[in-house]
Amino acid sequence: MRVYPDQLSRHLNQLFPCYLIFGDDPWLIETTKDQIRQFAKRQGFDEKVQLIQETGFNWNDLTQEWQAMSLFSSKRLIELTLPQAKPGAEGSSTLQALLQTPNPDMLLIIEGPKLANEQTNSKWFKTLDAHGIYLPCATPEGDQFMRWLDGRIKHFKLNLQPDARAMLHSLYEGNLLAADQAMQLLQLLSPTNPVSADELSHYFEDQSRFTVFQLTDALLNNKQDSAQHMLAQLNGEGTALPILLWALFKELGLLFNLKCEQAQGVALSALWGKHRIWDKRKPLYQAALQRLNLEQLEHMLALASKLELNLKQQGKEDWTGLSHLCLLFDPRAHRHLAHIAID
């Protein structure tokens, strides 16, 4: 039976003979195993045996462990790791034989990498799946990651404002361990008070002379000398590039939406409340909207996307490209720099 990790708690009202935990996300695999271990321990499974299918592994060891009497407990938990998720002919026969006569005093957890269709259609897998639960632990993406994030926010009882939630999503998508550690830190630092993106930047950035929000304000005001100085300072002090990209995406996206709505004839005065723009920040956006046209904003968003793609796929921290993007907040720079491509 296939059950996704975020649904496992609903199925822990009884123990199944085996649990199949396969996937590519270390955090999901470990937390899923921990849930099963804790529930099993409450049911009296106090002894744990760990086996790994390495070179020279003898499948008789698994059979003997399954049949052996425990020295310390009447119930035993066996954790078997299949590094390649390929038990082979002998292993396939052994696993199927074990589950033909389930032992209520034995529990089997099998762990391995993400499975291909060929493996989930194999006889050994179908036999175990019929007797137990299959938990695919692939790293969630997009909407699935947001649902996971909301679940962990609820778990830690955090009070995050929408911009802080969006910032966590942007910073940590694809890295559940780092996201979970960040939320544990937030639980310690601000267990009940509402947390905004501004406060998050203070929690997760190094203590910098300038903040990312000071940088975006300088860019909206087209104070290029100050902005480039701040960017160099933020770089030198170790500020995470994803935080800066998140902030620039946020401002460019907002400017783009405002510009589009203006083009449709909506008065700017009617848009402040819709986009939750405070009075003291209205002059910043007015200045930027007067300088930049829709085509320029589209180009800047495309450039920001390219920088983010290079960072996430290649691990490339392109501070030169980021400086280039910041310069484009000045419309005069588009005439001289817009043709330059980012590798």
Rank of each mutant, 00 (worst) to 15 (best):
D225T: 05
Y172L: 09
A178E: 12
R165V: 05
A227T: 05
F213D: 11
M230D: 12
T216R: 09
S170N: 14
G174F: 02
Q184A: 13
T239K: 00
G236E: 12
Q214H: 02
N221E: 11
E199H: 05
L245E: 07
F204W: 02
A166D: 14
N235C: 12
H169E: 14
A232E: 15
M230W: 12
K223V: 09
A240V: 03
Q233V: 14
T192G: 11
F204Q: 04
E205G: 09
T211D: 02
Q161C: 08
T216Y: 08
D217N: 00
A232S: 15
Y203V: 06
L200C: 06
S190T: 14
G174H: 04
D198E: 15
A182W: 12
A227C: 05
V195Y: 06
N193H: 14
T216F: 11
L241Q: 07
P194M: 01
F204S: 00
L186G: 00
D225P: 04
T211L: 06
M183E: 00
S201P: 12
F213R: 08
A178T: 09
A164E: 08
D206N: 13
V195L: 10
D217K: 04
A166H: 12
L160D: 02
R209T: 15
M183I: 06
V212Q: 06
L168D: 12
G174V: 00
Q233E: 09
L186P: 07
V212I: 13
L189K: 13
D217L: 01
L245G: 11
S208Q: 05
L200Q: 03
L231P: 06
A197R: 12
L177C: 01
L220E: 05
L220R: 06
L220D: 01
L244T: 00
N193G: 03
L160W: 02
L186T: 08
S196Q: 02
L189M: 10
Q228T: 05
A218W: 12
Q214I: 11
Q233K: 06
L234M: 10
